[in-house]
């Protein structure tokens, strides 16, 4: 156990050397690539350039939610509160990026579809995802930092949420595909994407992915610090009260 946490600390030290520069450079390259290098999409025009932040954002959010699920299992299994901090950090970043996906998607949808919002299957499931993890954060924020029962409750809720996602996807697809919408979804899945677009998209994956990992690390550290502070305060109060 000690060697594992030692190894984790070493990796953590490396992250500080690697993540900020990598995400910084990749994000710069992504902005230039998305706005200058990538060709203009013929059907949707300039606004299609939002793809390079919209699509990587939702993938980063999915990654973050996967981390939440794994960390929550470890919280229940090992009762290690450090993983509770990781789960909270990842959930915050997941909610942030889901929110950014919804926001950029709405701004993309207005000129292309003619509406900011529609109860399409994918939009609905993304919104439900946002709501589930926002509720998770809310529940966690309502409880005391050191409340282990609340941490386990949140972990159970996160696992429920993760296992609910397939059901949500399934149900909204059944619900919507039976009522075809006049709106054609963006042709993002088009395999005949020009190589420049693909390259910029790959850089965007790298940049936003590294940014999300870095933000998760920062946030988890903040949560862990908050726990340590609360524990220290409890000790100090007991000491001075005695």
């Amino acid at each position: 156990m000690n060697s594992i946490s030692g190894a984790l600390r070493t990796v953590y030290g490396w992250w500080w050397l690697v993540l900020p520069p990598v995400s910084g450079v990749a994000v710069m390259a992504m902005i230039i690539g998305a706005l200058v290098v990538a060709p203009r999409e013929i059907v949707e025009g300039e606004v299609q350039r939002l793809l390079y932040i919209h699509f990587p954002s939702i993938l980063a959010a999915y990654g973050a939610f996967a981390v939440v699920a794994v960390a929550s299992v470890v919280v229940l299994w090992r009762r290690d509160m450090r993983w509770d901090a990781v789960a909270r950090g990842a959930a915050t970043v997941g909610v942030l990026f889901t929110g950014l996906t919804l926001a950029t998607g709405a701004l993309w949808g207005k000129p292309v579809w003619g509406t900011y919002w529609t109860w399409d299957a994918r939009l609905t499931s993304t919104l439900v995802l946002f709501l589930i993890y926002a509720a998770y954060l809310l529940a966690r924020a309502m409880a005391d930092e050191l409340d282990e029962a609340a941490a386990r409750f949140a972990a159970v809720f996160a696992i429920l949420g993760a296992l609910d996602i397939p059901l949500v996807m399934f149900s909204v697809t059944w619900w919507r595909t039976l009522h075809p919408q006049p709106i054609v979804l963006r042709p993002g899945g088009n395999p005949a994407m020009p190589p420049e677009m693909l390259l910029v998209l790959l850089i965007a994956f790298l940049g936003i992915g590294a940014l999300a990992v870095w933000l998760t690390v920062l946030r988890s550290e903040a949560e862990w610090l908050a726990k340590r502070t609360a524990a220290l305060r409890a000790v100090a109060d007991r000491y001075e009260g005695a």
Binding site: V128, L160, G161, D164, V168, S171, V172
Partner: peptide, 11 residues
């Protein structure tokens, strides 16, 4: 907390 999880059931 409950309602987002219950979306599939509601549908």
């Amino acid at each position: 907390m409950a309602l987002p999880l219950l979306v599939p059931l509601l549908i």
